[in-house]
Every structure is written in C-alpha cells, then in structure tokens.
Design a protein around this nucleic acid. Structure first.
Length: 490
RNA sequence: GCCGCGUUCGUCUAGCCUGGUCUAGGACGCCGGCCUUUCACGCCGGUAACACGGGUUCAAAUCCCGUACGCGGUACCA
C-alpha cells in the first residue's frame, strides 16, 4: 500500500555510543513501516554534539544494521539525492533557517553567560516568556549592542515560544497530544559553537529530506511541541508522528529504561553487536523486537522479516512501556536454530568451540550439532552446555547421582565398559545393542545402565539421547570415564 | 516540583475506538501428565490479570471523572 505523499522515514541515531537494542527496535519499526508502504528508509547521523561524539560509534551502527539485514535506501554510505546525511555536514542549512526564524520574530539571539543561566535556574525559573525580558538577549539589548555581540560570535539562538497557546499534534500511537506553551521554555536552537541543537536540526532535516513519518522513541514526546511550533513558524507542514513505547528493564524494582548497567547485572546484552557475539540469530532478534510493543493481532509469533513487513501496522503498536524479556528472546531464537541445517549450525558453532580452546573435526562437529540442535537456545551452547563432548566431566551433577546412581551401578557400568571394548565400529546402534543385551542378561531394566552411563560420560542426568551421545564421545573416552565414575561414585 | 504519557496473568499481549458474544483469549516462564525401559523435541493439561474509587447505562475490561502508581521530559544531550 503506497501513500499519496510517498512514505519516507528516517532512522536518526546519534553516534554517542554503540547501537542499543532499543535503537534497533526503532530502526526496525521504521523499516517495516516504510517497506510496507513502499517507501524509503533514510539513515541520518545526528552528530551535532561534538563533545559527546564517540569514535567508532558510526561504524558500530552500520555494522549492527547490516548484521540484522535492515538496509537503508539513503545514508552516509550509499548517498542519495538528499545528501549529505551527517548533520555535521549540513550546518549551513541550520544557520539559514535559524536566521529565517529570527527575521520572522520567532527566534532571537541570546548572550547570557553560563553563570547567568545557572543563577536563573537556581531561582527555579525557566528561560521562557516570563523571564526572557530579564535576560541578555536581542529582545532586551540595543540593536547596536546586539550587532556587536553577534559579530563577536559568542551567542546562541533561542526559539521564542509564544505564551499561553496550546501546541497540539496527533500521534499515531497516542492520539491527540497537547501542551500549553507556557510549559515550554525558549529552547536553544543554535549553540555557541555554531552547531544546531537536535531540535533545530531535526525539523530542518526532516523537512528538507521530505520525511513523511517520524517514528521514534517516547523520550521525544515532550519535545515534539517545540518542533510543532517551529514547523508552524517556518510555514512547513509537520510530518506524522508516532512515538514508540520505551523498552524497560525487566527488573521491576529497578525500573526505567533498559540501561547498560542492567545489561551487566542481569545478563542482558544491550548493544546490538553484543547479541552477535552472544550467538543470537539476527532474524530472531528482529522477530523478538517486533513483538516488543507491537502485536499482529493474530496468534502468530514467529515471523520472517518479509512476513513482518506484511503484517505490520503502526496502529497496532502499544502505548505503554515494555519490559525486556530475555527468556522470550531465547525461545524465539531456539526456533531459528532449529530451522538451520546441521551444516549451518556447525559452521556457526565452530568459532565458539575454538574460542574455548577445543579442536574438533568437521565430521565430529557435525555429529555433535545433530545431537544438540533441538536442545539449545543459542549457538554457543553447542559447546558451553555440552562440554563433555570435548573433555572429561570435571564432576558429577549431585541431584543426578542422588536420583540415578544405585549400589549396583558401578558393577553394571564396569560390565558395560568391558563389552564396549569388543565393539569395532563404535556407533549408536552398536552401543545400544550392547547395553540392551547386558541389561537383559543381568535381568535389570535398561534404565539401570542408561542412567549411570550418561552420568559417567557426561557428568549429568540430561542431554542428548545416550546412545548417540556415547557414540559421539567415542570408545576410548567412554570406557575411561566409566571406569573413573565407578571408582569415584562407588 | 511542574508538564506529558501510560496502567489486562510474573512478562509480552488480544479484547477497548464501534459497551452485551469475556465464566477475559494467546504466547514466554513455571508446574503436572503422555511419549521415551534414557534426555530433549512434540503433544495434552494446569497456574495466573481487567490498579483503585466514583459516575453514565438495563449492561463497563470496554465510555466519563478522580486517586494511586509507573515511565518520560524538564540542558548550549540526543
């Protein structure tokens, strides 16, 4: 469905740090909406704060987006007819419109020092219609003085917010939102270093780039009336706004936006590229994120990117904050892992296996992956959850021993180990046959051997089917581990 | 503090706009069972919610008002 004025959305991160999952979700929703309506996605880098800019951040953003496969139509890399796409390279535009605003009487120069501003704030006043007359600006100083100060170059431009008006706008997810302008202060538009603030740059670029829909986080909701005032002052039509619910920390006691600290303390990655390191499937991350704040209205939960594009609609986006749920992400990821071919899984798992210092042949890794594929949730668990494939167990799971190890276990295990010696082709069928005949001859249930064998070889009471497990661990190791378990567990 | 936004199972949500079909549906998690003389997958079942108080109405999760709570904003940060 294409819109009349063509849909153009922008994802506008600031390179003050690596791309956050919340940022990725914003990018996703923009992407889904644009693709759904056959529109364009613009990547715009909002680097107007030179002091907070972090080297490498832009590369990380690029990396993250390309890893998950959200491709933009225009941006610093691919260019486009609205270039440049870095705000630091567009300063002349901002200066031009700041000037227009001043000439229209909708903005003014201000020369207050930091000390003067501080003093005002201590008096609990805001720089607004009620105080601007007491400050040092082009509204209170003589023209000659203003010219002199402007020439000296040390000034800012502030928006002249009208008193006692209502600034209202429609938000796709929240409906009509309105603010009384007396609550809004005279926001700085152009900083003393010549750079624009977010507010100015944002509306100038959105207008110049023909952005039709502004889809961004709720933290921007309160600054939107300022933007609406500026659109009005410049005689521009504002875009359609959609403010997305914030992603909150899953720790309800802590509350607030999901932060870097939560990441470390709750084991949740916050940066997109950390999800890559942690072995999540990019498609799964996207799928999970889509569901965090949006609902298709059906009972489907698993979507490919294309399916999401199809099902997406902004008016099915919720308005309340959502807690990040790592368990749910893992569940989604689990499904994507099952959809992988064994070869793909093995290929993805290899680096994690090698990082742990283990060596393994392609053939054996393939066998291991086959065994564990439907019981892991993230790729690295091929090794972290199944170390016994690579080294002898360092101990035995206590609960398992308690439940499964009996007085006769050691003898049965030793007998089984003996019979394993006779096997030439040590495969799943062979170890199973040996075990079942032993159980028959000893007149015990197969479980009487199965459980101790699993415990001895893997150190645990759960895992892949035992016979496949034993075969994959190999003859020598199995026999060695059984002897050791018989000794240690008696 | 002030302003704005929000509030359905522990969590993500459907339902709310267009009151009755909601003894509130699904999913994650958790618990139990089946399958497997093993583990998991799978399947089946269970657990658990309309923040509170007033209205309006024959009827309210759904509409209105208030309160509480949560979140966001309140910078020459984005």
């Amino acid at each position: 469905m294409a819109f009349d004025p063509p849909v153009r959305v922008r994802f506008a991160p600031s390179p003050t740090g690596r791309l956050h999952v919340g940022g990725l979700r914003t990018a996703l929703y923009n992407y889904l909406f644009a693709r759904k309506h056959e529109g364009d996605v613009v990547l715009r880098i909002e680097d107007t704060d030179q002091t907070r800019s972090v080297r490498g951040a832009e590369d990380d953003i690029r990396d993250a987006l390309s890893w998950v496969g959200l491709d933009c139509d225009e941006g610093p890399d691919q260019g486009g007819e609205y270039a440049p796409y870095r705000q630091s390279e567009r300063t002349e535009h901002y200066r031009e419109y700041a000037q227009t605003l001043i000439e229209a009487g909708r903005a003014y120069y201000a020369f207050d020092t930091e000390g003067e501003l501080e003093e005002m704030r201590e008096g609990n006043r805001a720089y607004d219609g009620s105080t601007r007359r007491q400050m040092r600006n082009s509204l209170t100083l003589s023209d000659a003085e203003v010219d002199r100060l402007v020439d000296a170059g040390d000034y800012v431009v502030r928006l002249k917010v009208p008193r006692q008006e209502s600034a209202r706008f429609d938000d796709v997810v929240r409906g009509s939102v309105s603010f009384d302008t007396s609550e809004i202060d005279d926001q700085v538009l152009l900083k003393s270093d010549g750079m624009p603030t977010y507010h100015l740059a944002n509306i100038v670029d959105d207008h110049l780039m023909d952005i039709s829909h502004v889809i961004r986080g709720e933290e921007w909701l309160s600054s939107t009336p300022k933007h609406v005032l500026m659109y009005d002052a410049l005689g521009w039509e504002p875009p359609t706004f959609a403010h997305l619910p914030l992603i909150l920390s899953p720790d309800s006691d802590r509350g607030g936006k999901l932060s870097k600290r939560d990441a470390n303390e709750l084991g949740i990655p916050v940066y997109v590229t950390d999800y890559r390191e942690a072995g999540y499937e990019p498609a799964a991350l996207l799928n999970f994120l889509a569901l965090l704040g949006w609902s298709p209205g059906t009972e489907e939960e698993l979507f490919s990117l294309d399916e999401m594009v199809d099902a997406f609609s902004l008016d099915r986006v919720g308005a309340s904050g959502v807690q990040f749920d790592l368990d749910k992400l893992r569940w989604v990821n689990e499904h994507y892992i099952r959809d992988l071919s064994v070869e793909e899984l093995a290929e993805k798992a290899r680096p994690y296996v090698e990082d742990e210092g283990y060596e393994v042949s392609d053939e054996r890794l393939h066998t291991i992956c086959e065994l564990v594929q439907d019981r892991i949730q993230v790729v690295p668990e091929v090794v972290t959850d199944n170390r016994y494939f690579f080294e002898d167990p360092k101990g035995y799971e206590e609960a398992g021993v308690e439940k499964r190890w009996t007085d006769e276990s050691a003898d049965l295990l030793l007998a089984y180990a003996d019979r394993l010696e006779d096997i030439d082709t040590f495969d799943t069928d062979a170890v199973e046959t040996k075990l079942r005949t032993l159980a028959d001859e000893e007149n015990v249930g197969a479980g009487a051997v199965i459980h101790p064998a699993r415990l001895a070889v893997s150190g645990r009471s759960y895992g892949p089917g035992v016979f496949g497990l034993l075969a994959a661990v190999g003859k020598e190791a199995c026999i060695r581990r059984m002897h050791r378990a018989a000794e240690e567990l008696g």
